[in-house]
Nucleic acid binder design. Sequence first.
DNA 1: GGCAGACTATCAAGCGGTCGGTAGATAAAC
DNA 2: GTTTATCTACCGACCGCTTGATAGTCTGCC
Lengths: 222, 222
Amino acid sequence: MASRAATDKSGTEANGGRHERKRRREDEVLEASISTFHEQGYAGTSVEDIASRLGILKGSLYHYISSKEDLLFKIVSEVHADVQRILDESLGRTDLSPIDRIALYVRSQAIYNARHITRISVYYREVDRLGDERRAVIRRQRRAQHDMVTQLLTEGQESGEIDPSIDPKLTSHCVFATLVWLYTWYKEGGAITEDQVADCCVGFVLGGIAHPAGLPTAPAPE
Amino acid sequence: MASRAATDKSGTEANGGRHERKRRREDEVLEASISTFHEQGYAGTSVEDIASRLGILKGSLYHYISSKEDLLFKIVSEVHADVQRILDESLGRTDLSPIDRIALYVRSQAIYNARHITRISVYYREVDRLGDERRAVIRRQRRAQHDMVTQLLTEGQESGEIDPSIDPKLTSHCVFATLVWLYTWYKEGGAITEDQVADCCVGFVLGGIAHPAGLPTAPAPE
DNA sequence: GGCAGACTATCAAGCGGTCGGTAGATAAAC
DNA sequence: GTTTATCTACCGACCGCTTGATAGTCTGCC
């Protein structure tokens, strides 16, 4: 749904491509895992839970997977690739100004997140359940993404579009926050459309980084 | 630390108040649970893990707790009370304008979150592990908090301080996002101070909701 | 008839939780 | 001031159940 397009490479058959069907089943396994991990959490999900969702028994599921953690890693990797693609596509638009690139990125990512709540939720909540090495890999990749946004903010400051007084590193965390947090409150198929959500996020982020228009200084607490 | 003040009600003894010592131990149990839940997640934490952290055996820990879920509920309730207090204190400042109240709230909550990363992390990540009824209670309380911020944003729109084109309901989610997401990236005791974090959050949020043409008193160029 | 895909049976480990028991401090009784 | 009773905090073994994972068997499609 989210990542792979239907690239039929079987020459003769109409539907029953060998590898095609196997790949489709593997996608179903992944999909079932994502839903279950989303609902119950990784540690709270048993392999049997996933198997039940697929209508098979636990032992049968091991025909497709090598371990539970492997499953999580596959999910996280796949989502990461999606997120990276969105980031690359937006930041690669050198025909746009920095702030327009940010707007494009926020909009694209917001819509993706609204459309794939379960994936994003698992991607951000369950990384720590991976083994040490794999977790380190993901963390490094994520830091790279953070650096890309930070760099973009810095460019915007240099070009005079973005408030020069903000800290790009800290602020990019706020940008991610706005986007990621969607998974906790947005309901697919509800009254709020993806576009409304995207508009809200874009407006919030752009306002948060734009040149100050004489904002009031916050009073100190207490 | 976060919630209870030291109210010594033992009349005669200097230190060894009976109930005082028991209460202190209960706090240690809670503290150890918070740390372990934060590091390993609720489902990934065994009761034995917590007991080990306290230097006792699992069976002994049940002298203080009635169940694992009870422990989580106690933590969540305690943190919720803290968060509610911050919200009440900020929104109760009727001497301040709506936008100043928001700024105060964001600053107070940001500092609290930066100071209590582990608590906030557990509070927001592990609610779903509670039983149905308890989860419903917390969810209802949280929605009430959300409504309070939404209401405040609406007031700000009416008073002309806040961009009338934004959706208060959606935007308050963004405000919470900025604050809560802190637990994923801020490190206590690092190079970044709590004040820097708070400044960043306040700036980001105020920018994200401010009137696009600037404040009535300080109109912006462009 | 070969093989993918499902089932059955089983394992060792770990889980939350219970229970009988005890060492030591405290407090009351004599 | 010694004995007796009570309480707190903890131990360590155990129960019933679930877990992730493995191995062997059956079945039906190409």
